[in-house]
Write a protein that binds this DNA or RNA. Structure first.
Lengths: 218, 218
DNA sequence: AACCTATTGTTTATAATTTAACACATAATT
DNA sequence: AATTATGTGTTAAATTATAAACAATAGGTT
């Protein structure tokens, strides 16, 4: 399940953070940076930074380091930010609206082209100039409009049904906010945002010390 | 930076998923389950499941497997769900409101006791019976009310300032939705939810094949 | 121009994580 | 009651990820 990437996910998940830090450096007019200096800021080892970047090319120069702007742009390309993406959000509840209103994504090239819900009270309302449509029109809409990324913000009971429609209509990337795992073919990528799991991880860590104290006490 | 856990984060991040799947099994009246069967559903190897669980105790029985209800409750305890937590949300924009409206968290024992914002248009409005307060009152509030978890939903520019207030007032766990890394003492736990990083990871994976096709073509 | 310093890309070593193997215990079956 | 199945906890092996080491190279300096 899930096509294996050529680059390990451990590396891939660090890329956006490089991009973010380089963007900051750029805004602060820093022209060049060494892996050592970046290491101190970003919190990865210098060795790891060099290895990570070297998966994609020889971006640095001995004795000099990396040119911040050039590297920022390279990583942007690696992340696919030189392209534009059409997205639809299904589920216009709290999360759906929050995602719709994240104008930052627009700036990165992710264009929201449709919002859908099944709640008659929401249908017809506009979010960022996009009218919320009836989810019954989703399939029709996807047939007439090219969409790259489908965003699922419906309750978990309806998530698989929406995913099936996405898959049927040829969408290859799903951003899933529903607290459930989706079944999709191997060539479809699913990226989950499971808020509950994140909160429970925090809760675990908050209690860990005590947990093992008890264990010893027994 | 960041206290090291006794159990590796790789394991910890799987715990909520066990909890979720066991909860489903329980609702479906499944009484017992083997690591093999759970493996097929959850997508981890049976070996990994046994090793993960064995970090915390001997919950299974040879020839029988695991009792679903007992294991569900054990993992609940491990995750700290036998306790209650007071939380405050700072930043009542889209994300803040979305989190505030997640009634599921309440059911898990996470009680929202305060919401704060600096926008006069939001101050005074109620979300789930909680009046949004002026963020200038945050410190005062935290001195008079016990809060376990601080939730940061403000723009990145203000995030560190809020984190500093949390730390100053003795909060030991921060759930951070701002797209920035927070500086906190070692005994304070930060769990980040970086939506942009998640989206960029998706974008990367959507483009990966093409990326390496180009590389070879050069 | 020659030398020194900085810093990369890359190789090697170490550590962490995952998977497989298996001895032993329980449950089910005859 | 004896035997066979199942399925755990645990140890060992394999794999993957991270960190350290270092040779090679460009830039700065005298």
């Amino acid at each position: 399940m899930g096509k294996k990437t050529m680059i390990s996910m451990a590396v891939v998940r660090r890329l956006p953070k490089y991009y973010r830090y380089l963007g900051e450096l750029l805004r602060n007019d820093v022209e060049r940076i060494s892996s050592k200096e970046l290491s101190e800021r970003i919190g990865f080892t210098a060795s790891q930074i060099r290895q990570d970047l070297n998966n994609f090319g020889d971006f640095g120069q001995q004795g000099y380091g990396y040119n911040v702007r050039a590297l920022y742009e390279e990583i942007g390309k690696i992340l696919g930010l030189n392209k534009n993406y059409n997205t639809v959000i299904v589920g216009a509840g709290n999360i759906g609206q929050a995602v719709a209103n994240y104008t930052n994504f627009e700036r990165l090239g992710f264009h929201l082209v449709g919002i859908f819900d099944r709640n008659p009270k929401l249908i017809g309302i506009s979010i960022r100039d996009k009218v919320i449509q009836d989810v019954d029109n989703l399939e029709e809409f996807l047939k007439n409009n090219h969409v790259d990324i489908g965003i699922i913000c419906v309750p978990k009971e309806q998530a698989q049904k929406i995913a099936d429609i996405f898959v049927k209509c040829g969408i290859k990337a799903i951003w899933n906010f529903a607290p459930t795992d989706l079944n999709v073919p191997d060539d479809v990528i699913v990226e989950n945002v499971h808020l509950s799991e994140s909160l429970l991880t925090l809760s675990y860590r908050l209690n860990e010390a005590e947990l093992f104290k008890e264990k010893i006490g027994r």
